[in-house]
Design a protein around this nucleic acid. Structure first.
Length: 419
RNA sequence: GUGGGCGUAGCUCAGCUGGUAGAGCUCCUGGUUGUGGUCCAGGCGGUCGCGGGUUCGAGUCCCGUCGCUCACCCCA
């Protein structure tokens, strides 16, 4: 056991019961997103490292310590995607999607990789479902995008959901605000926590998240980004809020909401759930109007979000897992090769006719085969013996001889319609 | 990277102040020489995470290490 190999730290196997549950998430999200015109996209699991280095931000934890980066045989620096937005914008530019009707609406269900210590709801390989609308800066895009995630979380029964909302403005207004904030922090530097002081240059916005008492006092009087937006950004944000209000989607304005990636502009939001542990974020996102340029493409506005499958499942109500169906179990009634072959062929014929059917595959005794059929909740059991085929209805226990394999299939099909 | 909790059968766990490993569930077989979810009996299944130490003797005590887990940091 000790030297037997295990899944790498922070990763997990999705076993059949879990995969059935995850499928329900995929089905709901797909239904809601495709009804809004989003179409699925898949990008490679790894990208040129620059795709993330240039967009996510040099100062972020993701780039500084969480990327799985490797050098391939050709000397290229590749990185397992830590997030999917930048790859999708890369694909948008690479395939000239700016020539399509805008915005281009794309959704994905992909795994991401971050080198972090695992805990509840956080893994080194995790799955995100996400939606991106690229090519329009209309505030309706923002509101619709947020509404779609809200709908998905509601349909999946995610408990204790809160929506926090803010606007980060444009890079220019954000830069001006950043200087104001840095000045404020420097003016009170002696009262700040050590790690906050260290980050004044790199990421002063993080100071709002500090638990340190002195820092919190200083931040009470700190300037707020929302008070320093450009007129156009203020209007954009007001329209987003008006649309959400009209949609009757509740939210809280949080002027200190900071998302972990540098490419966000204007609208940012996050859904949290009280049902989660320390990692309370279920999903979030925002607008990223500068991302395409950072990738060397033409300036293109964009808006999107990502939600964690594992966190959705953790925060969602328990729901019944659909059980696999087996209408016909084919038992081998003798130990001769002809019976085994006939049973094998009968199961295949039934499946071709659309009947979910299984045949004995483990050499069990007939009693064992019936136990197996019961476990599978098989509606019928066919016993293929040297003298012919008998068919037993497992619900009422009736059993009779059947003249041919085709008759077996016909009876089972009829039985399915009756119930 | 740092700290707390936990590592005994596939799963859930018991195992006293150290005496040489158990239960329930699952699975297989039999009771029923070809018939199911109940019942009864039997069987399969364990380097007690790993390494070292103390001891006549370690699942149990000590040290180290690895893993899982929760939390910090940060995020999905």
């Amino acid at each position: 056991m000790s030297d037997a190999l295990q899944a790498p730290r922070g990763t997990f196997d999705v076993l059949p019961e879990q995969s059935a549950l995850r499928l329900t998430v995929e089905v709901s999200a797909r239904k809601i997103l495709e009804a809004a015109g989003y179409r699925r996209i898949e990008t490679p699991a790894f990208e040129d490292t620059d795709v993330f280095r240039r967009t996510v931000g040099e100062s972020t934890d993701i780039v500084q310590k969480e990327m799985y980066t490797l050098i391939d045989g050709g000397g290229r620096s590749l990185t397992l995607r830590p997030e999917v937005t930048a790859p999708i914008v890369r694909a948008y530019a690479e395939h000239g999607m700016h020539k399509l009707a805008q915005p281009v609406k794309l959704w994905y269900l992909s795994s991401c990789f971050r080198y972090e210590r695992a805990q509840a709801g956080r893994y080194r390989q995790f799955w995100q479902i996400g939606a991106e609308a690229i090519g329009s800066e209309d505030p309706a895009v923002d509101a619709e995008s947020i509404l779609l995630l809200a709908a998905i979380l509601e349909e999946l029964g995610v408990r204790g959901v809160r929506l926090r909302l803010a606007s980060l403005g444009t890079p220019a207004s954000r830069a001006r605000y950043r200087e104001l904030l840095q000045a404020h922090l420097r003016a009170h530097e002696d009262r700040l926590a050590h790690d906050v002081r260290e980050r004044i240059d790199l990421n002063p916005l993080r100071a709002f998240d500090s638990d340190h008492a002195g820092t919190r006092e200083v931040m009470q009087t700190a300037p707020l980004l929302l008070d320093h937006l450009d007129a156009a950004d203020v209007e954009h944000f007001a329209t987003v809020r008006a649309l959400l209000d009209a949609s009757e989607l509740g939210y809280e304005i949080d002027p200190t909401l900071v998302r972990g990636l540098d490419y966000y502009t204007r609208t940012v939001f996050e859904f949290t759930s009280e049902a989660l542990g320390a990692q309370s974020g279920v999903g979030g996102g925002g607008r990223y109007d500068g991302l395409a340029e950072q990738l060397g493409a033409h300036a293109t506005p964009g808006m999107g979000w990502a939600a964690g499958i594992e966190r959705i499942l953790l925060a969602a109500e328990e729901r019944p897992v659909p059980e696999p169906v087996c209408d016909l179990f084919v038992a081998v009634g003798g130990d001769g090769a002809p019976e085994r072959t006939a049973a094998f062929l009968l199961a295949a014929q039934a499946r071709r006719a659309g009947v979910p059917a299984q045949v004995e595959l483990a050499g069990r005794s007939l009693k064992g085969q019936f136990k197996q059929a019961a476990r599978l909740r098989a509606r019928y059991v066919a016993i293929v013996g040297a003298d012919g085929i008998e068919l037993k209805d497992m619900e009422n226990g009736e059993q009779s001889a059947v003249p041919s394999p085709s008759a077996v299939v016909a009876t089972v099909l009829r039985g399915r319609f009756e119930t």
